Simulated scan of single mutants.
Amino acid sequence: MLRLIGAFRNSARAFRRLLGSEAAFQQEVVLLLAAIPVGWFVATSWRSYALLIGVILLLMLVEVLNTAIEAACDAVSSEFHPEIQLSKDCGSLAVLITILIAGAVWAIAVIERIVGGPI
């Protein structure tokens, strides 16, 4: 049980730090807070609502991992290294791919809401 409490404290510390210093994470938290009520009106079922919120949480997860990669790379060296640049670029690409997935999921949900059923 103590291990679980310690893990929760570490996670809360990371959340507070990201919320205080990472603009992308701050924007994604705002996006999540907006998506919770908007998704309720867009979704046609509980399943689609869970998917709409889940894809935003997925985006936040990938952003957290990208930030971890960048922090680890910066801790290793402040000098330019092609391998470090590739690591950072790959993390950034992962975020972009997740944004595209989230946008597609939300676009499909909006279209389904407008036409009145699955497309």
Rank of each mutant, 00 (worst) to 15 (best):
L31W: 02
I36G: 03
W46C: 10
N66Y: 09
Q27E: 12
V76C: 03
L31E: 04
I97M: 10
S48A: 09
G103K: 07
L58V: 10
I5C: 13
L57M: 09
V64R: 04
V64W: 08
L2E: 14
M60P: 01
D89F: 14
R13K: 12
L33W: 05
L86C: 06
I111D: 03
V95A: 04
L31C: 03
V95I: 12
C90A: 13
I84T: 11
V38G: 03
A68S: 05
I111T: 11
T98C: 11
A104T: 14
V38P: 00
Q27H: 10
L61C: 09
A24V: 11
R47A: 15
L58I: 08
S92T: 14
L59A: 02
E70I: 10
L52R: 01
P82S: 10
L57P: 01
A35L: 00
S92I: 09
A43L: 02
V105T: 08
I36D: 04
T67W: 11
I5Y: 14
C73D: 07
E70H: 07
T67K: 08
G117C: 01
R3V: 14
I53P: 00
V64C: 08
L65K: 12
V110L: 09
M60C: 02
F25A: 02
W46D: 09
A50V: 12
G6A: 15
A12I: 10
E22S: 14
A94G: 05
S77V: 13
R16F: 13
G20R: 01
A75M: 06
H81E: 15
W46V: 13
S87G: 06
T67D: 09
A14M: 07
R17I: 05
V38Y: 06
I101Q: 00
A7V: 13
